[in-house]
Protein backbone atom coordinates (compact mmCIF):
# COMPACT_ATOMS: atom_id res chain seq x y z
CA UNK A 1 0.00 0.00 0.00
CA UNK A 2 2.75 2.44 -0.84
CA UNK A 3 0.91 3.90 -3.83
CA UNK A 4 -1.42 6.82 -3.34
CA UNK A 5 -5.02 6.21 -2.62
CA UNK A 6 -7.91 8.57 -2.41
CA UNK A 7 -11.25 8.61 -0.58
CA UNK A 8 -14.23 10.68 -1.65
CA UNK A 9 -17.69 10.70 -0.07
CA UNK A 10 -20.72 10.43 -2.33
CA UNK A 11 -23.39 10.36 0.37
CA UNK A 12 -22.82 10.83 4.04
CA UNK A 13 -25.21 10.49 6.94
CA UNK A 14 -24.80 9.53 10.59
CA UNK A 15 -25.28 5.83 10.12
CA UNK A 16 -25.09 5.38 6.42
CA UNK A 17 -22.55 6.47 3.86
CA UNK A 18 -21.37 5.83 0.34
CA UNK A 19 -17.78 6.62 -0.52
CA UNK A 20 -15.34 6.06 -3.33
CA UNK A 21 -11.88 4.65 -2.74
CA UNK A 22 -9.34 4.82 -5.55
CA UNK A 23 -6.05 3.06 -5.85
CA UNK A 24 -6.74 -0.08 -3.83
CA UNK A 25 -6.66 -3.64 -5.09
CA UNK A 26 -9.84 -5.75 -5.13
CA UNK A 27 -8.26 -7.92 -2.42
CA UNK A 28 -7.72 -4.96 -0.13
CA UNK A 29 -11.23 -3.63 -0.75
CA UNK A 30 -12.66 -6.98 0.27
CA UNK A 31 -10.31 -7.11 3.25
CA UNK A 32 -11.72 -3.80 4.49
CA UNK A 33 -15.28 -5.03 3.96
CA UNK A 34 -14.65 -8.21 5.90
CA UNK A 35 -12.90 -6.33 8.69
CA UNK A 36 -15.88 -3.96 9.02
CA UNK A 37 -18.30 -6.86 9.38
CA UNK A 38 -16.33 -9.26 11.53
CA UNK A 39 -13.28 -7.67 13.10
CA UNK A 40 -14.23 -4.36 14.65
CA UNK A 41 -14.94 -4.92 18.34
CA UNK A 42 -18.21 -3.53 19.70
CA UNK A 43 -19.96 -3.62 23.06
CA UNK A 44 -22.94 -5.90 23.59
CA UNK A 45 -24.64 -7.50 26.54
CA UNK A 46 -23.30 -10.99 27.12
CA UNK A 47 -24.38 -12.19 30.56
CA UNK A 48 -27.69 -11.44 32.24
CA UNK A 49 -28.59 -12.11 35.88
CA UNK A 50 -32.33 -12.15 36.41
CA UNK A 51 -33.67 -10.92 39.72
CA UNK A 52 -37.29 -11.16 38.68
CA UNK A 53 -38.88 -12.16 35.42
CA UNK A 54 -42.60 -12.85 35.49
CA UNK A 55 -43.12 -11.88 31.85
CA UNK A 56 -44.40 -14.25 29.15
CA UNK A 57 -40.89 -14.85 27.81
CA UNK A 58 -38.24 -17.13 29.23
CA UNK A 59 -35.08 -15.68 30.79
CA UNK A 60 -32.88 -16.83 27.92
CA UNK A 61 -35.18 -15.28 25.31
CA UNK A 62 -35.02 -11.93 27.05
CA UNK A 63 -31.26 -12.27 27.48
CA UNK A 64 -30.94 -12.76 23.71
CA UNK A 65 -33.06 -9.69 23.02
CA UNK A 66 -30.98 -7.60 25.42
CA UNK A 67 -27.83 -8.86 23.76
CA UNK A 68 -28.97 -7.73 20.32
CA UNK A 69 -29.57 -4.15 21.43
CA UNK A 70 -26.74 -2.03 19.99
CA UNK A 71 -24.66 -0.19 22.59
CA UNK A 72 -22.44 2.79 21.91
CA UNK A 73 -18.83 1.68 21.84
CA UNK A 74 -16.24 3.82 23.65
CA UNK A 75 -13.20 5.25 21.83
CA UNK A 76 -10.43 2.85 20.98
CA UNK A 77 -8.19 2.00 23.89
CA UNK A 78 -10.77 2.83 26.58
CA UNK A 79 -11.74 -0.79 26.94
CA UNK A 80 -9.86 -3.97 26.34
CA UNK A 81 -11.27 -7.44 25.93
CA UNK A 82 -12.61 -8.91 29.20
CA UNK A 83 -13.60 -5.49 30.57
CA UNK A 84 -17.29 -5.36 31.47
CA UNK A 85 -19.90 -2.67 31.88
CA UNK A 86 -22.98 -3.36 33.98
CA UNK A 87 -26.42 -2.31 32.82
CA UNK A 88 -29.61 -2.78 34.78
CA UNK A 89 -33.25 -2.76 33.85
CA UNK A 90 -36.28 -2.57 36.13
CA UNK A 91 -39.74 -2.24 34.61
CA UNK A 92 -43.08 -3.11 36.15
CA UNK A 93 -46.25 -3.86 34.19
CA UNK A 94 -48.55 -2.79 32.72
CA UNK A 95 -45.83 -1.26 30.57
CA UNK A 96 -43.41 -2.13 27.82
CA UNK A 97 -39.73 -2.51 28.65
CA UNK A 98 -37.66 -0.64 26.07
CA UNK A 99 -33.94 -0.66 25.42
CA UNK A 100 -33.97 2.94 26.67
CA UNK A 101 -34.89 1.63 30.14
CA UNK A 102 -31.43 0.10 30.44
CA UNK A 103 -29.38 2.06 32.97
CA UNK A 104 -25.65 1.87 32.43
CA UNK A 105 -22.92 2.42 35.00
CA UNK A 106 -20.66 3.91 32.33
CA UNK A 107 -21.46 7.09 30.45
CA UNK A 108 -19.61 5.87 27.36
CA UNK A 109 -21.71 2.74 27.00
CA UNK A 110 -25.38 3.51 26.43
CA UNK A 111 -28.10 1.91 24.32
CA UNK A 112 -27.69 3.36 20.81
CA UNK A 113 -31.40 2.97 20.09
CA UNK A 114 -33.85 3.80 22.84
CA UNK A 115 -37.04 2.51 21.27
CA UNK A 116 -36.41 -1.18 20.79
CA UNK A 117 -39.19 -3.06 22.61
CA UNK A 118 -37.73 -5.77 24.84
CA UNK A 119 -40.88 -7.26 26.33
CA UNK A 120 -44.49 -6.23 26.77
CA UNK A 121 -45.40 -6.52 30.47
CA UNK A 122 -48.98 -7.10 31.57
CA UNK A 123 -50.59 -6.20 34.88
CA UNK A 124 -48.52 -7.51 37.80
CA UNK A 125 -45.61 -8.71 35.65
CA UNK A 126 -42.14 -7.42 36.34
CA UNK A 127 -38.72 -7.55 34.76
CA UNK A 128 -35.68 -6.81 36.86
CA UNK A 129 -32.27 -7.83 35.64
CA UNK A 130 -28.61 -6.94 35.67
CA UNK A 131 -26.52 -7.40 32.55
CA UNK A 132 -22.83 -7.39 31.78
CA UNK A 133 -21.72 -5.96 28.45
CA UNK A 134 -18.41 -7.04 26.97
CA UNK A 135 -16.35 -5.90 24.00
CA UNK A 136 -16.03 -8.57 21.32
CA UNK A 137 -15.77 -9.09 17.59
CA UNK A 138 -18.44 -9.74 14.99
CA UNK A 139 -16.95 -13.10 14.12
CA UNK A 140 -17.85 -14.40 17.58
CA UNK A 141 -21.48 -13.34 17.58
CA UNK A 142 -23.66 -11.24 15.25
CA UNK A 143 -24.56 -8.94 18.16
CA UNK A 144 -20.97 -7.61 18.08
CA UNK A 145 -21.24 -6.77 14.40
CA UNK A 146 -20.81 -3.01 14.02
CA UNK A 147 -21.27 -2.72 10.26
CA UNK A 148 -24.45 -3.95 8.65
CA UNK A 149 -25.07 -4.34 4.94
CA UNK A 150 -21.48 -3.47 4.08
CA UNK A 151 -20.67 -3.87 0.42
CA UNK A 152 -18.84 -2.36 -2.51
CA UNK A 153 -19.13 -2.10 -6.28
CA UNK A 154 -16.74 -1.08 -8.97
CA UNK A 155 -16.97 2.53 -10.02
CA UNK A 156 -18.24 2.50 -13.61
CA UNK A 157 -17.47 4.71 -16.52
CA UNK A 158 -19.97 5.36 -19.30
CA UNK A 159 -18.77 5.67 -22.85
CA UNK A 160 -21.03 6.95 -25.61
CA UNK A 161 -20.31 4.74 -28.58
CA UNK A 162 -22.72 5.96 -31.22
CA UNK A 163 -26.15 7.37 -31.90
CA UNK A 164 -28.92 4.82 -32.08
CA UNK A 165 -30.46 4.22 -35.53
CA UNK A 166 -33.31 6.62 -35.97
CA UNK A 167 -36.26 4.23 -35.74
CA UNK A 168 -34.89 1.79 -33.25
CA UNK A 169 -36.61 1.62 -29.91
CA UNK A 170 -34.17 2.13 -27.05
CA UNK A 171 -34.04 -0.65 -24.51
CA UNK A 172 -33.57 0.20 -20.87
CA UNK A 173 -30.09 -0.44 -19.54
CA UNK A 174 -30.10 -0.93 -15.80
CA UNK A 175 -27.05 -0.14 -13.71
CA UNK A 176 -26.79 0.30 -9.96
CA UNK A 177 -24.19 2.12 -7.94
CA UNK A 178 -22.21 5.16 -8.95
CA UNK A 179 -21.00 6.17 -12.41
CA UNK A 180 -18.26 8.57 -13.38
CA UNK A 181 -18.97 11.26 -15.94
CA UNK A 182 -16.03 13.50 -16.86
CA UNK A 183 -14.67 13.23 -13.35
CA UNK A 184 -18.07 13.87 -11.77
CA UNK A 185 -19.61 11.16 -9.59
CA UNK A 186 -23.26 10.51 -10.31
CA UNK A 187 -25.37 8.15 -8.23
CA UNK A 188 -27.58 5.97 -10.41
CA UNK A 189 -30.60 6.89 -8.25
CA UNK A 190 -30.57 10.26 -10.06
CA UNK A 191 -31.82 8.64 -13.27
CA UNK A 192 -33.78 5.74 -11.82
CA UNK A 193 -30.86 3.33 -12.42
CA UNK A 194 -31.61 3.42 -16.14
CA UNK A 195 -28.93 4.60 -18.56
CA UNK A 196 -31.44 4.98 -21.40
CA UNK A 197 -33.01 7.83 -19.44
CA UNK A 198 -29.68 9.59 -18.98
CA UNK A 199 -28.54 9.09 -22.57
CA UNK A 200 -31.67 9.03 -24.73
CA UNK A 201 -30.97 8.03 -28.33
CA UNK A 202 -27.39 7.00 -27.65
CA UNK A 203 -25.66 3.69 -27.64
CA UNK A 204 -23.55 3.50 -24.50
CA UNK A 205 -21.01 1.08 -23.13
CA UNK A 206 -20.17 0.59 -19.47
CA UNK A 207 -16.80 -0.35 -18.16
CA UNK A 208 -15.32 -0.76 -14.71
CA UNK A 209 -12.81 1.82 -13.59
CA UNK A 210 -9.82 -0.24 -12.45
CA UNK A 211 -9.06 -0.19 -8.74
CA UNK A 212 -11.87 2.20 -7.83
CA UNK A 213 -14.54 0.94 -5.47
CA UNK A 214 -17.69 2.52 -4.17
CA UNK A 215 -18.41 1.29 -0.66
CA UNK A 216 -21.83 1.35 0.89
CA UNK A 217 -21.57 1.18 4.66
CA UNK A 218 -24.16 1.24 7.41
CA UNK A 219 -23.58 0.94 11.13
CA UNK A 220 -25.92 -0.33 13.83
CA UNK A 221 -25.34 2.85 15.85
CA UNK A 222 -22.38 1.58 17.89
CA UNK A 223 -20.18 4.24 16.30
CA UNK A 224 -20.05 6.57 13.31
CA UNK A 225 -19.11 5.50 9.79
CA UNK A 226 -15.66 7.15 10.10
CA UNK A 227 -14.97 5.24 13.31
CA UNK A 228 -16.04 1.96 11.75
CA UNK A 229 -13.88 2.34 8.66
CA UNK A 230 -10.77 3.59 10.45
CA UNK A 231 -11.06 0.89 13.10
CA UNK A 232 -11.45 -1.73 10.37
CA UNK A 233 -8.24 -0.47 8.77
CA UNK A 234 -6.56 -0.54 12.19
CA UNK A 235 -7.51 -4.18 12.78
CA UNK A 236 -6.00 -5.12 9.41
CA UNK A 237 -2.82 -3.29 10.35
CA UNK A 238 -2.73 -4.97 13.76
CA UNK A 239 -3.07 -8.41 12.19
CA UNK A 240 -0.46 -7.64 9.54
CA UNK A 241 2.00 -6.56 12.25
CA UNK A 242 1.22 -9.67 14.24
CA UNK A 243 1.94 -11.82 11.19
CA UNK A 244 5.17 -9.97 10.51
CA UNK A 245 6.33 -10.50 14.09
CA UNK A 246 5.35 -14.15 13.99
CA UNK A 247 7.35 -14.98 10.86
CA UNK A 248 10.43 -12.99 11.76
CA UNK A 249 13.57 -15.02 12.25
Amino acid sequence: MSEEYDVEFVEREDREARFLVRGVTPAFANGIRRAMVADVPTMAIDTVRFIENSSVMFDEQIALRLGLVPLTTPPEGEFVEDDTVTLSIDVEGPDTAYSGDLVSNDELVQPADENVPIIDLKDGQRLEAEADAVIERGKNHAKHQGGVGVGYRHLQRVEVVDDLPEFEEQESQIVRGVIEEDGELVSTTEFDHDLSKRYPGKEVRLEDVPNAFVFHVETDGSFTIEELVTRAADTIEARATELEDAVQL
Partner: peptide
Protein backbone atom coordinates in the same frame (compact mmCIF):
# COMPACT_ATOMS: atom_id res chain seq x y z
CA UNK B 1 -44.12 -13.19 20.37
CA UNK B 2 -42.26 -9.86 20.45
CA UNK B 3 -40.86 -8.32 17.28
CA UNK B 4 -37.26 -9.43 16.57
CA UNK B 5 -34.68 -6.83 17.61
CA UNK B 6 -32.53 -7.26 14.51
CA UNK B 7 -33.02 -8.47 10.99
CA UNK B 8 -32.12 -12.17 10.80
CA UNK B 9 -30.23 -11.74 7.56
CA UNK B 10 -28.27 -8.50 7.73
CA UNK B 11 -28.28 -7.56 11.41
CA UNK B 12 -29.88 -4.15 11.00
CA UNK B 13 -31.91 -3.04 14.04
CA UNK B 14 -35.59 -3.21 13.00
CA UNK B 15 -37.35 -3.59 16.38
CA UNK B 16 -37.48 0.14 17.01
CA UNK B 17 -39.70 0.68 13.96
CA UNK B 18 -42.29 -1.93 14.84
CA UNK B 19 -44.65 0.18 16.94
CA UNK B 20 -44.93 2.95 14.38
Amino acid sequence: MMVPVRCFTCGNVVGEHWEE
